[in-house]
């Protein structure tokens, strides 16, 4: 099974548009998954029907049993996250600040505090218009542990791929380079970077590339809206080559991207998708799915 993660570092480079396009070209050969659990957009342009949804619990939070509590305040003293506040004589846990470390429950002299699971999002399985499954999730706003939800999205996608005997998983990654991004690419066979040719795009690409190198995952680069700044496009490609990352081509600026978005479709689905863009996307799909796409790593 080949798992391909699409990542960008910076948001807004066209990662989700490319992921949707790859999903459409793959038809029913792939399982898609959206690991941007903060702002899950891939299903907007690809999904047709939600099959099932389940609650996600990202961790625990402390809960006080007031029939036992003697208001001694030890819990508030030991909490490093300022999650215990005193309100008109009684101590209260602020669930949004509680990290679930359990320190308070261990030191409570009357055993009045226990840890309870917190529902902080949902995990869903949908079908796409082109016959594939899409695993996606929604983290409640302001919640923690999006990395863990990302891992669960990945795990469900692998499960579905195994049951349905699909040998390809396409992962739409989150922006950034910390735990959600790490969870989205760890164990992937290939990372496709989608970068835009700007100073910030270059800076973000370099940091994201460094992450994939640290994790020893082979990668490739596609530059979106390449003609907006040809010099930086060249700089991006040079950065990729120096890191033994594959240069997989460029996509010119085109209004077909925003138009596809507005009609809630993937780019290759539009009847008037320019031939050069369609071909670039098809070639990109073939490059990333061919069996031996490997850089110097692994």
């Amino acid at each position: 099974m080949k798992q391909i993660a699409i990542l960008s570092g910076k948001g807004g480079t066209g990662k989700t548009s490319i992921a949707g396009a790859m999903g459409f070209i793959a038809e029913n050969r792939a399982v898609l998954c959206d690991c941007d659990v903060d702002a899950s957009n891939l299903p907007l342009t690809t999904a047709s029907k939600v099959i099932k949804t389940s609650d996600f619990s990202g961790g625990f939070a402390a809960e006080i049993d007031y029939s036992k509590c003697v208001s001694c305040g030890i819990c508030a003293k030991v909490c490093r996250f300022d999650a215990v506040i005193k309100d008109s004589g009684s101590y209260q846990i602020q669930k949004n600040l509680c990290e679930g470390c359990g320190y308070c429950s261990v030191v409570c002299p009357v055993k009045a505090i226990r840890l309870t699971p917190v529902v902080s999002g949902s995990l869903s399985l949908s079908t796409s218009r082109f016959g594939s499954f899409i695993v996606h999730a929604d983290l409640h706003t302001g919640a923690e542990n999006s990395g863990k939800l990302s891992s669960q999205v990945r795990a469900m996608a692998r499960e579905i791929a195994a049951i349905e005997e699909k040998d390809l998983i396409i992962i739409d990654g989150p922006p950034g380079i910390s735990c959600p991004a790490i969870a989205a690419i760890s164990g992937a066979d290939f990372v496709l970077f989608v970068a835009e040719p700007s100073q910030s795009g270059l800076s973000d690409y370099k940091r994201a590339l460094e992450l994939s190198q640290k994790m020893r995952i082979p990668s490739g680069l596609v530059v979106n809206r390449a003609d907006i700044n040809p010099e930086i496009t060249e700089l991006l490609n040079r950065t990729a080559r120096q890191a033994n990352s594959e240069v997989l081509g460029s996509i010119p600026f085109s209004d077909v991207f925003p138009r596809a978005l507005r009609s809630l479709k993937t780019v290759p689905e539009l009847q008037d998708c320019p031939t050069d863009i369609l071909n670039t996307l098809k070639n990109l799909y073939h490059s990333i799915t061919r069996p031996n796409t490997q850089g110097d790593y692994k």
Binding site: D36, A39, L139, T141, G142, S146, P174, P175, G176
Partner: peptide, 10 residues
């Protein structure tokens, strides 16, 4: 702010 609506943005 950081992108997204999770803990870092909050």
């Amino acid at each position: 702010a950081p992108p997204g609506t999770a803990c870092a943005a909050r």
